[in-house]
Nucleic acid binder design. Structure first.
Lengths: 242, 242
DNA sequence: CGGCGCGTTGATTACTGTCAAACGGTGTGG
DNA sequence: CCACACCGTTTGACAGTAATCAACGCGCCG
């Protein structure tokens, strides 16, 4: 499992120091790996999962559908993210989890998670922390959707994903793989594809981002961050005792 | 403290059974009570609080401001809500907490919270749970802002607040006190006051809600819930072992 | 080669914001 | 006790943003 939970370990270590014992404890988490194609449902809304899933490769997202069938994405998960840790306590899923790109995830049975949390209060706090960071990201999305312009919100999202990817070692310089469709972006920001398309083009024309296929390049991060008024505080990317 | 944490106890008991020992442990939480006038900041963005605050009376909200001064509210808290439990692990506040109405809150020092969590793993889980429900509410708000019509989102919010208030015993029949301004509502939904005003009026005209001063009455909850396509699952108002 | 899915475009419509003014209740000072 | 100021609510006109619709381009895969 060591290989598979590498991103999780890295993600937690970006926020606090792990002892060898804690690393071993994490590595002791058993689980089964499952692969999904883009668009497949990983966890259904309304279900009561008995295992939590950790992203190993690719992207997943939480999706909610309104009565009239519109989709809203309310989180994007990258490798190392424990997608539905909350499923352990929330029992019934109020949303579904979908594969946004081809991806593989690790299902860890809840009793195993509880075992680890009982064994290490500190690790328990760090897992709690990861759900709190989830919440902080949700708040940032809300202000983005509610109060930012489409273009600056797009830029904001790109900054966020860039930093999160870099935190787990999935960037090369200013480039990273962001295999999402414009429909997905639209559903993250609560807008139409057409409008996202036009806004994205204007970001490209302004030289703020390059985006070819799934390869995103940020020519000048500082400039993009300034444009988006991006403040990374909410990502809690500082190693501190927690 | 027993009197003061009554709403917290009630809120947790709506989700799981508490033992006498757990109730006592909660009651042992010391803290200082502070009153705020509407509009005052309770916790400043960027600060690193050493205590978490619990709402005793009135409403508070998390507020984020964009670079150009627009306000977005990304949570509304009612009595019994542990507003910034996450402050304990998130160290730096990425948002401020404001008094939406006149309110009183209890500040509980983080070390005391840690003591309680160490003493009872179960209570620790329930506090974790309360932050997870916070997250679930954020997701509901995101889909509301992103994909619902203004009117149905307003109706959705009213349903949510009604159920949350009822869960801690703050409703009388179909009526509750909701002391927020239309500007606050606008900032919760990412819209302008003018637009909120018109949408609210149309809800009133349709007989879906009555709203005089701060007194909200829901003549027919089922009808309102149907109109809002409101599904209370995300509030986790079922007593289950967690 | 053809079909499919995503991206792109332009025209049109609908929604929401901004601005500016008036209304109404409350509390204060004369 | 009344006049006034203040603040939130309400209204209407107008401007700007985003959705919808429909068509086309383009690359990939069968």
């Amino acid at each position: 499992m060591i290989e598979q939970i590498a991103f999780l370990t890295r993600s937690l270590e970006r926020r606090d120091v792990l002892s060898d014992g804690e690393r071993l404890l994490l590595a002791s988490l058993p689980g089964s790996v499952v692969e999904y194609q883009r668009g497949q449902a990983i966890i259904e809304q309304g279900s009561e999962p008995k295992a939590s899933c950790l992203v190993l490769e690719g992207f997943t997202a939480r999706a909610q559908y309104t009565e009239d069938g519109k989709r809203q994405l309310a989180a994007l998960h990258i490798p190392g993210d424990f997608v539905d840790l909350h499923g352990m306590l929330l029992t019934t899923m109020d949303h579904s989890v979908q594969a946004i790109s081809r991806c593989s995830v690790l299902f860890v049975p809840h009793p195993e998670l509880r075992r680890v949390i009982s064994a290490s209060e500190h690790l328990g706090r760090l897992l709690w922390l990861s759900t709190l960071i989830d919440g902080a990201i949700l708040r940032a999305w809300i202000t983005g959707i509610g109060r930012r312009s489409t273009e600056s919100n797009l830029a904001h999202l790109i900054c966020e994903v860039f930093l999160r990817m870099r935190a787990v070692g999935l960037t090369r310089d200013t480039r990273f793989d962001f295999a999402v469709t414009q429909q997905d972006l639209a559903d993250m920001q609560g807008l139409s594809v057409v409008h996202i398309n036009k806004s994205l083009q204007s970001l490209k024309k302004a030289g703020l981002v390059e985006w070819r296929g799934s390869a995103v390049t940020i020519p000048d991060y500082e400039r993009l961050a300034r444009f988006a008024a991006f403040d990374p505080t909410y990502l809690n990317l500082q190693q501190r005792p927690r």
